[in-house]
Computed example of a mutant assay.
Amino acid sequence: MLTFRKAAVLAVFVLTAVYLLHSSHSTAASRATLADNQKLDFETSKQQPKTTGVPPSSEKPLRPYPPPRQASNTQDLAQQPLTEVVTTSLRDRLQYQFPYDRAGKFPAYIWQTWKYTPASGDFGETFRPAEASWSELHPGFVHEVVTDDAAVYLLKHLYASVPEVLEAYTSLPLPIMKADFFRYLILLARGGIYTDIDTTAIRSTTDWIPSEVPRSTFGLVIGIEADADREDWRDWYSRRIQFCQWTIQAKPGHPVLRDVVANITEETLRMKKKGILMEKKMDKSIVEFTGPALWTDTIFTYLNDPTYFKMEGSKNVTWETFTGMEVAKKVGDVVVLPITSFSPGVQQMGAKEPDDPMAFVKHDFEGTWKPESERVKPVIE
């Protein structure tokens, strides 16, 4: 006789048997599916072209290292090459991160640096008219006055993928060196106009270059700071022709900016490793390290580099190419403005007055990076 107890035991036995049979079938199906997927992954991976991680030598380089491959297991992941980023040169990585498009537009940015923003009560009345002149003559531009503290965070955002550049910037021992470095860094990454806080805009940048010169044919606009026409010029300037860096207009990624950023980064880290990255121990002057001497040398090196363009007759570009200029001159993709354009009113070296048609920016030579007691006007004879 089938009692209630026996019926309950029998029911449990039947349910257990059904569950075991179903689990066995599901496991076998899962294994078959997994095997098929692994086979598909392997066949797909064989069809993928191999990449070397070396960027081609072209005007618009590709990524200097390939994106990580999706590994099918831990062993494959461990075998992926990890040295490509390290072995790619700093200049190549900067070129990838900030590509240069000569035919592109000049970004509508105006960059300045100061201890305070114009919204701060501590900004001071001295620089307000000068700062305002840039916004007044460029109403459609984004005008940013970046404080020293904000500059660090901005550069961390822009150069996160190039950590040695950030290390170099934060390691520089003097404010003037960081101010020099910042102008190159912001123009390389974003382009536009950098101008010192003690400069006054006389004419809009849209009037700097004659309209018949296509904007798609140049990517850097610079001015002459010194056209030293005296025998003792070495006592006053570092170069016979010296380009100013208090006002620069550029398209992002320009090779001159890339080279000057790489140079400062490499020299900073070299001196840091050597233990001489201190004000009185450096083996370079500020002018040669981050200032107008380095800027001038980098420009001349670029203008004579056949990798970018060749001059007619293979004649080298020297100071003689620019001495005595009274109008703009285009060399390759660089437009050089005469001394009057960014240094009107200095009453020497052929510079004309601020009301001259070629006067675009007036520099007050405040030496804003110096203590107030050390700021002096330039000597004029």
Results as ranks from 00 to 15, higher is better:
P210S: 02
C244N: 15
K280E: 14
V256E: 03
K46L: 15
S120W: 06
K156P: 01
P55R: 03
A17F: 07
Q70Y: 07
Q245E: 08
F181Q: 03
K329Y: 06
L220G: 03
S343C: 15
E320Q: 10
P210A: 01
T247S: 10
H363W: 04
A32P: 03
L337G: 04
L137K: 14
L303G: 02
G332A: 04
A17G: 08
T318K: 00
K60C: 08
T301N: 14
E144L: 14
F360S: 15
R215V: 13
I276N: 09
V54G: 02
L188E: 13
P64T: 09
K273E: 15
P338K: 02
Y308N: 03
D283L: 03
T206H: 07
R93M: 09
L137T: 08
T126H: 06
V213H: 04
W319Q: 12
G350C: 09
A226P: 06
A28E: 14
P118F: 00
L187Q: 00
F127L: 09
D235L: 14
K178Q: 12
V335N: 00
E266D: 08
A103D: 11
V142A: 11
T307C: 11
D76R: 04
I380A: 07
S238T: 12
E84C: 11
V165D: 00
L62Y: 06
Y159I: 08
P49D: 10
P61M: 00
Y302T: 02
K310N: 04
K251E: 04
D122S: 11
F360G: 14
R240W: 05
M278H: 07
E381D: 12
E125P: 07
H138S: 10
E381C: 06
A189H: 01
I264N: 01
P255N: 06
P61F: 01
N316V: 13
G140P: 04
V346E: 04
R183H: 04
V14H: 10
E326Q: 11
D122T: 09
D207W: 01
D259M: 04
T323V: 12
E279Y: 05
V86P: 03
S204L: 10
V86K: 12
K115D: 12
L303Q: 01
T307N: 12
K370S: 07
A8K: 09
L20T: 08
E312V: 13
T206M: 10
W134V: 03
A78S: 10
L21V: 15
E59M: 10
T87V: 13
L166S: 06
L94G: 00
E312R: 13
V54R: 02
M271E: 06
L40M: 12
Y159K: 05
L77Y: 12
Q347D: 12
A32I: 15
F13L: 15
L337I: 12
L15A: 14
V54C: 06
A108H: 08
K284V: 12
P99H: 06
T268M: 01
V9S: 00
H22L: 15
S30I: 13
E320L: 11
Q48C: 09
D36Q: 14
W319E: 15
T296Q: 02
T296S: 02
A179L: 05
F342E: 05
P55K: 03
F309W: 12
Q80E: 14
T301W: 07
W134M: 04
D198A: 08
T368V: 13
A78Y: 06
A32F: 05
K281T: 07
S341R: 00
Q347T: 09
E167H: 05
R240N: 08
A8V: 10
T52P: 05
K50R: 13
D36F: 09
E43A: 13
T206S: 12
